[in-house]
Design a protein around this nucleic acid. Structure first.
Length: 284
DNA sequence: CCGGCATCCTGTGTGC
DNA sequence: TGCACACAGGATGCCG
């Protein structure tokens, strides 16, 4: 679920509330969800929270970090015993009125009585104690997709020219471009008016420029709107509130509806085993 | 090396 | 109402 904009929103908010705190305890409720020794981080002070691709990295003193991947259904909810809890959605697996809940896998406690709840319905996500960034394969990731300085046009041209794969699969490949997931791959291609199935090496110069601009623009817009909580509404900000960018999506999950630009019908196909949405009329 | 598929899990929605 | 099946935002590992 969470892609770059959602993880970036969480990172920013966690950085605000966790910086300077000490970890006082780690409770692992589901073994598969926590990799490494919880004792290694106990008592450590938090220096800051950063992000690489879709991984949140809580950096502590002595070069130790907690790397967190939310995969499809992970949530990170921060709460202090005293503060008013967010409670809008009472039912369903992603409601966070009462914590811990059935899907809470790890609870991290801090010296200000705050707690960070890692919830994950499908148990695909993980928290990992790391000493070096290579333990999460950081050096393998491509440039950050929302950063026009590292994601250059020259770089984009070079990776596209080398492959015959459909363009959507390339922008979803974290080793080529870091942070784009299924929602924003669909939205970016729509914005650039390019079909997801187009062969990468056949994009012309104009299309390549437009697609790069669209990816950067779409991701940064979504960050402004604090991410998308679509469909099952798993994604939450650290307060438990939903994001708002779902209200701005143009094609993702909209099969059968009218395109807002041209009135054409939004189609759904499967590409690389993932739901793929596009407007047949305005994407070429 | 590549594409395609199954896999890790649990839950919801749809159609018969 | 029951049941079977499709689908779900990610990423890896296996196969031929």
């Amino acid at each position: 679920m969470p892609e770059l904009p959602e993880v970036e929103t969480i990172r920013l908010q966690l950085n605000n509330v966790l910086k300077g705190l000490k970890i006082t305890g780690i409770e692992v409720l589901t073994k598969k969800s926590f990799l490494g020794d919880p004792g290694e981080v106990k008592g450590k002070k938090i220096i800051g929270v950063r992000r690489r691709a879709k991984i949140t990295i809580i950096e502590m003193e002595k070069g130790i970090s907690l790397a967190i991947h939310l995969k499809l259904t992970g949530q990170l909810i921060f709460r202090k015993g005293t503060e008013k809890k967010y409670c809008e959605q009472k039912d369903g697996p992603f409601a966070v009125c009462e914590l811990p809940n059935k899907f809470t896998r790890v609870i991290i406690s801090f010296n200000n009585r705050g707690r960070l709840y890692f919830n994950d319905l499908r148990i695909f996500g993980w928290i990992k104690v790391i000493n070096t960034s290579s333990e999460i394969g950081e050096e393998k990731f491509g440039p950050e997709a929302n950063d026009k300085k590292s994601f250059t046009l020259e770089y984009f041209n070079s990776i596209l020219s080398k492959t015959k794969k459909p363009i959507k699969l390339i922008i979803l490949d974290q080793e080529k471009l870091a942070g784009v997931g299924n929602i924003y791959a669909n939205e970016s291609l729509y914005s650039a008016e390019i079909l997801p199935t187009r062969q990468s090496s056949f994009l012309n110069d104009e299309e390549t420029v437009k697609l790069r601009d669209s990816i950067i623009k779409v991701l940064n817009e979504a960050i402004k709107h604090k991410g998308s909580s679509d469909r099952d509404e798993a994604y939450r900000q650290i307060s438990g509130e939903k994001g708002t960018h779902q209200n701005y999506l143009k094609v993702y999950g909209k099969a059968g509806q009218k395109c807002s630009k041209c009135g054409g019908i939004i189609k759904r196909i499967s590409l690389g085993g993932r739901g793929t949405f596009y407007c047949e009329k305005c994407q070429h």
